[in-house]
Design a protein around this nucleic acid. Structure first.
Lengths: 157, 157
DNA sequence: TGTGAAAAATGGGGCGC
DNA sequence: GCGCCCCATTTTTCACA
């Protein structure tokens, strides 16, 4: 179930149509089926079928508008590494999930237990957020402030 | 230039229509103007106008399909912090931008100079990538492997 | 799976208010 | 800035290969 393409003639590059569709949609989530069909050289309905299958198989998990955090009033980004204090039976991600300033939460190997990516309006807001994180989840924090973002949200494909 | 809404009658919550649209589109980038119009209680053309303005003002920078990295064959995520070695006149982000495994690149305050978020197929691929990063950009690396991702891509709004 | 065509819904622009 | 009408395009579904 990993290959759904022709047997790949030697010499011809066996472009995977589904890959092309995923790459196109990762770059422009509103691309019309007509555009996509032209790009991959299939009919509109074939493309429609393939995209539906990609959605059903979970390869495409959703569609998002990408917003500019600065223009939204959230110019300050930071990575917050957290370490539980004392009792280890708590679940920091769950205890913190209501904080909408937290955009990502990863469990990680290394000195600390989790890494959060957060966005706030100002240094003051960051200070308040850190206090909340420490209080809610009973953790200590180590914060790395982002000075500038060179690139972000680059499609993995 | 910060308010574009009605004078807000006392008692009624003065919901900012543009915020609602941004939040809706951040969650479903393919929402139709009809859906959006129902959600905010305006006509389709009014919504259409507002969304166009949000795009033109740069608040909406694009639309993306969100893909599942695991199903794409990139189950291993890591944060790589890098520190330049020797000459400081080089530009690591530029020297590394061709590496498609790098999804994000941030300049940061703290011990290290940059933080990268990378996605690879395997530990072997990670080792190769780290070698490439060190060789291309003349940097040392410190890598934090992600064990699991609790949440990611949460809309900032 | 892919193709083609027909019905239904949506996108996009202009005009009056 | 909003609402409504009109038309091109697109989406969605169908039978057929």
């Amino acid at each position: 179930m990993s290959s759904s393409n022709s047997p790949a003639e030697p010499g011809a590059v066996p472009v995977d149509v589904d890959r092309l569709l995923l790459a196109a949609l990762a770059r422009d989530g509103r691309a019309s089926y007509t555009e996509l069909a032209e790009k991959v050289g299939l009919s509109v309905s074939a493309v429609h079928q393939r995209v539906r299958r990609l959605e059903q198989r979970g390869l495409i998990t959703g569609y998002r508008a990408v917003l500019d955090p600065k223009l939204l009033g959230l110019p300050l980004t930071a990575f917050v590494s957290i370490t539980p204090i004392g009792a280890q039976n708590e679940d920091p991600p769950a205890l913190l999930s209501h904080l909408s300033a937290i955009e990502e939460c990863h469990s990680v190997a290394g000195q600390e237990s989790y890494i959060l990516k957060v966005r706030v309006a100002s240094p003051d807001a960051l200070e308040l957020l850190l206090r909340e994180i420490r209080a809610c989840a009973n953790v200590s924090t180590r914060t790395t402030v982002v000075l500038s973002t060179l690139y972000e949200d680059r499609p993995p494909i």
